Amino acid sequence: MTADLPPAIICQVVKVHDGDGPIHCANGAKIRVAGVQAPDFASAEPCRKRRRGYVCDDRKALASKRVAERLTLGKRLVCQPVDRSYQRVVARCALPNGNSLSCSLLARGAATKWQTYWTRYRMGGCA
């Protein structure tokens, strides 16, 4: 963790972009969920080449987003920053019940473990 990262962020979730973020907080923070990767819109597999470009199946991305919304929307998360990515804070977030958001997304099949970052951010095990 670099010195310019803020302390823990209390995030009242007002919007979820997709399964791994950014999660938009009422205080303006944008958080990318640490250690996991979820399908992205417009690039979700399977994409098929067509005459006018690629056609992607966004159903997996939408399903992942809906899981993330059910877990977080309108709730208060406590997020510990571990890095920055673009204009977002990458953070390990705890749900109101104390469970890891990353582990909860994995358990529900909404994301996969991104091993490189899981190790780098010392995510630990999931219960």
Rank of each mutant, 00 (worst) to 15 (best):
D57H: 06
R66E: 13
W118D: 10
S43P: 00
Y117G: 03
L95V: 00
A42H: 14
G21D: 07
D4V: 04
T119G: 08
A110V: 05
V82G: 01
R92M: 11
W114V: 03
A61L: 11
R76K: 14
L101P: 06
S104H: 01
D83W: 05
V14G: 02
K60Q: 13
Y54N: 12
A44L: 08
R88A: 01
L71Q: 04
Q115I: 13
R108L: 15
A44S: 15
R88Q: 03
L106H: 06
D58R: 01
R108Y: 07
V14I: 15
T72N: 07
K49Q: 14
K30D: 11
G74F: 12
K30I: 06
C93D: 00
W114S: 12
F41D: 05
D58N: 15
G19D: 11
L73F: 10
V90Y: 01
K113Y: 05
V16C: 01
A94R: 14
K75P: 02
L101E: 03
V13H: 02
A61K: 05
G35Q: 08
A94D: 12
R84S: 06
L95F: 00
K75G: 03
N97P: 03
A94L: 14
A110W: 03
A111E: 08
D57I: 06
M1R: 11
A42T: 13
R51L: 15
Q115H: 12
L101Y: 04
L62N: 02
N27H: 09
G98I: 01
K75Y: 06
D83I: 02
Q12R: 13
K65F: 09
V78Q: 11
I23E: 03
Y117P: 00
Q115V: 14
R92Y: 07
R66Q: 14
V33P: 00
S104N: 04
V90Q: 02
S100W: 01
L71P: 02
G124R: 09
Y54V: 12
G35P: 10
N99F: 02
T2L: 12
I9M: 05
L95K: 00
T2G: 11
L106G: 08
Q37N: 15
W114M: 13
K60G: 14
N97L: 02
W114A: 15
P39I: 09
V67P: 00
G53W: 02
M123H: 00
R52M: 09
R92D: 07
N97R: 04
R51M: 15
N99G: 05
V55F: 07
D18I: 02
H17T: 14
W118C: 09
R120H: 10
K113Q: 15
K60V: 06
T116C: 01
K15A: 15
P39D: 10
L101R: 05
L73Q: 09
V33Y: 00
D18E: 10
G109S: 04
A38F: 03
V13L: 05
R48M: 11
D40A: 13
A8T: 12
L105D: 11
C47G: 07
V16T: 00
A26T: 02
I23A: 11
A44T: 03
V78F: 07
R122I: 04
W118I: 10
N97H: 01
Y121Q: 03
G125I: 12
D4Q: 10
V16L: 04
F41A: 01
I31G: 04
L101W: 01
A91C: 07
K15F: 14
I10C: 06
V67G: 05
A107L: 08
R59F: 11
W118V: 10
V90H: 02
G53P: 04
A91F: 07
D58M: 04
S43T: 13
L5N: 04
